[in-house]
């Protein structure tokens, strides 16, 4: 069986740096640092909740290459 690795992609040119995603992240993996958004890949469980609620559609869970 092949295990597919997923990861959260932040589209920086789409992101409005509002922090709505940070508030819904169940793991505390996202953080709004000054005026940019970061994800801690070690903590992120790729659940896609942030991607669902983003006002602009700036987050995407993708299969890692």
């Amino acid at each position: 069986m092949i295990k597919v690795f997923k990861m959260l992609i932040i589209k920086r040119e789409v992101c409005g740096y509002c922090g709505a995603c940070v508030s819904v992240c169940p793991e505390g993996a996202l953080e709004l640092v000054d005026a940019y958004l970061t994800v801690d890949p070690e903590t992120c469980i790729e659940c896609g909740i942030c991607s669902k609620i983003c006002p602009l559609g700036a987050l995407e869970v993708k299969n890692a290459e």
């Binding site: 508030s23 992240c25 909740i49 609620i53």
Partner: peptide
């Protein structure tokens, strides 16, 4: 735990 439930975040523009 400060997580806001998905159904209870108003996403705004």
């Amino acid at each position: 735990d400060t997580t806001v439930p998905v159904a209870e975040i108003e996403t705004c523009v």
